[in-house]
Nucleic acid binder design. Structure first.
Lengths: 269, 269
DNA sequence: CGTTAACTTGATAGCATTCAACTAGCGTGG
DNA sequence: CCACGCTAGTTGAATGCTATCAAGTTAACG
């Protein structure tokens, strides 16, 4: 990616390997040199967004897409009764509003769950890139499809599982995804969501989330303090959750881990 | 689409206008003559599938995509306890396993909910078409994104709404979608799902679906008999459901209705 | 050291599930 | 022709998971 100077811009060393979007797409399609160059050449604006700040709001007509460089975002919709449903969490390398490239009007909002760093790319640039490099378009399309698979699993979660499995399942998913970006060393990962927010994601009240987490801790499956989660017994946690990672459509775990860039490089972006 | 003779093959008059895929895609991107020709030129096999028959099974590695010509399909996944979650219903013009074009392995199954007619197109043909006509690729990508929006709304449905609104909401969605394909004249549409299946879609037991439908009937919002639903009070039904069609990402209702082909032409395919 | 957000704990209430029995429609076969 | 079985739909009663309400605790922060 080429740099553009702007209000919140930052400048730092950058390479193909440390570009989170390349890192992500390359797990499924092998990008040619020219394709990687095209991604690196995308104009973008790097911005810091604060905790709890909205990136996109329902009914917006977006003209750019965000790439998460660092931090945690979520998609959500506010329901009429003031309740809120969280649809997904987005970590480094994700494009939470990729949908906006195709939708006239957003049907949901996107917010930062902690201070985060985002790279904003204009829609025209993405469109042009996709026209010139159709395989990148296919790779991005694939991301949309993979997001859909996650939505389906979340539907299973809220409709078909009980509180205990439901909560465990979300933890399993976040662990696998973060591990895929080398952000969960030793089964431990930073996950800055409140119990209230967790409840909005799994369809439970904050009170019940609390009791459920206590049970997960009591059974020795996880520990969760200071916004950081540790998997204490991965096998039992998966079993308790009924977690089957197929829906995440990743490569085999070992390959996954091998191809992911080391965390140090990731931080360099 | 060009014809190929095969086991269940049928031959009949066919035009651009009666091709359900063109009809669907054209609502959002205007296809050029060449692009329409490319779609018409897709090789396909027309097949009849029986009620309750699986088109795709979980863990399959599909090599073709189905286009619904007539009938009703659903995506679903069987949960460990024998329960089943339905993720979506698919009507004329839909490509229920478009995902399969990008996923190595299917994470869910697809079944016919009544005897249906499908056009199967090999993945290679789709891939080739998308390479030659990137705008068709974009249109299909958009379909994937729109499917994702529906999943999100279903998540809201099962997680955030009560049985009454939940059931009403599904009816609203099916009505709008079917109307968009001119399959719901006079607020009446064929919807061959059992109460058990409806429960699998909205996350309720069949017993509770029954009581909920009775309430909807009692309040004079719908009638539902002989697998056919009639909207008796569209305004009140929408209000009861908390239904806001934005998430379906259609054009304005009037435009929508105007662009949809007449039902007679549709049947000709 | 007061204020606030996040977390914790207990008690009560309600929506939906489950179990169970019963009805209606429909095709099959004796 | 009727008995039978099967599926779909209906109804009632009891159980249970989770929400809600309410109060209290902890931790962070100015």
């Amino acid at each position: 990616m080429r740099f553009r100077l702007h209000d919140h811009e930052r400048s730092m060393p950058l390479s193909h390997a440390s570009n989170p979007l390349i890192a992500k797409l390359q797990r499924f399609v092998s990008l040619s040199r020219a394709e990687k160059d095209a991604i690196v050449a995308l104009p973008f604006i790097l911005k810091q967004v604060g905790d709890n700040q909205d990136i996109v709001r329902e009914r917006d007509k977006p003209s750019q897409c965000a790439i998460v460089v660092q931090g945690l975002l979520c998609r959500y919709k506010t329901l009429n009764e003031g309740a809120r449903q969280i649809f997904s969490f987005h970590i480094r390398g994700d494009m939470p509003d990729l949908d906006g490239l195709h939708l006239e009007i957003m049907d949901h909002s996107i917010a930062a769950m902690e201070a985060s760093t985002l790279a904003f790319v204009p829609h025209e640039s993405l469109t042009a890139m996709v026209e010139n490099y159709p395989r990148i378009g296919v790779a991005l399309w694939r991301e949309s499809v993979a997001d859909g698979a996650i939505y389906r699993e979340w539907m299973v979660n809220v409709a078909g599982r009980e509180a205990y499995q439901r909560t465990a399942h979300l933890i399993c998913e976040m662990y696998v995804r973060l591990r895929g970006m080398s952000l969960a060393p030793n089964g431990c990962f930073h996950f800055p969501v409140t119990q209230e927010e967790l409840g909005d994601a799994v369809g439970l009240s904050a009170v019940h989330v609390n009791r459920t987490l206590q049970q997960l801790r009591r059974e020795g499956l996880i520990s969760w303090k200071n916004r950081s989660v540790t998997i204490l017994d991965w096998d039992r946690l998966q079993k308790a959750a009924g977690f089957d990672p197929v829906y995440l459509h990743r490569l085999e775990p070992e390959v996954d881990a091998a191809m992911a860039m080391p965390q140090s490089l990731g931080q360099a972006f």
